[in-house]
Design a protein around this nucleic acid. Sequence first.
DNA 1: GTTGACATTCCCATGGTTGGAAGGTTGAGT
DNA 2: ACTCAACCTTCCAACCATGGGAATGTCAAC
Lengths: 152, 152
Amino acid sequence: MNIGEAARASGISAKMIRHYESIGLIPNAGRSLSGYRYYDKKNIHTLRFIRRARTAGFSAEQIKKLLSLWSDQQRPAREVKQLAEQHLSQLKERINELKSMAAALSELIMHCQGDDRPDCPILKSLADEDTTQEFNNSLNKPSIRHGQSLKK
Amino acid sequence: MNIGEAARASGISAKMIRHYESIGLIPNAGRSLSGYRYYDKKNIHTLRFIRRARTAGFSAEQIKKLLSLWSDQQRPAREVKQLAEQHLSQLKERINELKSMAAALSELIMHCQGDDRPDCPILKSLADEDTTQEFNNSLNKPSIRHGQSLKK
DNA sequence: GTTGACATTCCCATGGTTGGAAGGTTGAGT
DNA sequence: ACTCAACCTTCCAACCATGGGAATGTCAAC
């Protein structure tokens, strides 16, 4: 199987397959005489595993661990569960942060008439130290992380 | 005021102040004879505005708009509200994605004994096409975005 | 033998932020 | 005057996942 077929079969783009190889998430693929990578069923299975784990929001680092646990038939389920729990608590933390942002923003929006007049509590709140009631209480925690950008 | 003082006064690191200047979020700062940037109260006020908007999760691009709206005394509140609403809906969308990830993961974790035995439904579900009940139903949407990594 | 669909490597960009290196400036203490 | 620490400057690289594109090579079918 070429990388394109592998991509179709696994649901991971050829670009990403090469990338995963380059960061050591998957072992170097075999090469044909002309230098093409080739993949077998086992490789595809691994790629699918990775896709699912990514879909579940695991980081590359966590997936690396999951893969090694996966390939170790002797590992205790405890370790896997622990990793998953760690990830879950990170997810929950992130959700709470976003929720408090959303709540604060929602509050501001409600107080804004949104008409043709220039008076706007949203800007006031962002600008002013003292207009800061609930808004800054709920937001002034060290909460921002990079990359919460929404694709597209 | 030097950049260091400005950083302390605004709560934005000197690094980021330079960065914001470089991407045009703030105008080029004045320079002393020796090339040091200097800032006055108005600049600090702007920086604080930016910090608050970042804390509220606005992107740099959105903040750019907010700043221009802020400096325009004539702008209708409608525009600001619209921007805030757009951001809010992005936040909500993101929250829902994370929630469905968390729910699915939580489901898996509950089914895992987490003991010394190697049998683990979490790995099974990630590996297997057919073990995929609710898990993949809730996860197999085009949902993953980059950078949901949780800092440290 | 040409064409089209693949493959390869390499570099660049995104988003926000941080880190470091290598060097110049300032101000205070000796 | 000299030194030292604390500041400042610029440039470059990294995180993470992903995609775009260029330049070039290979394989199949017609």
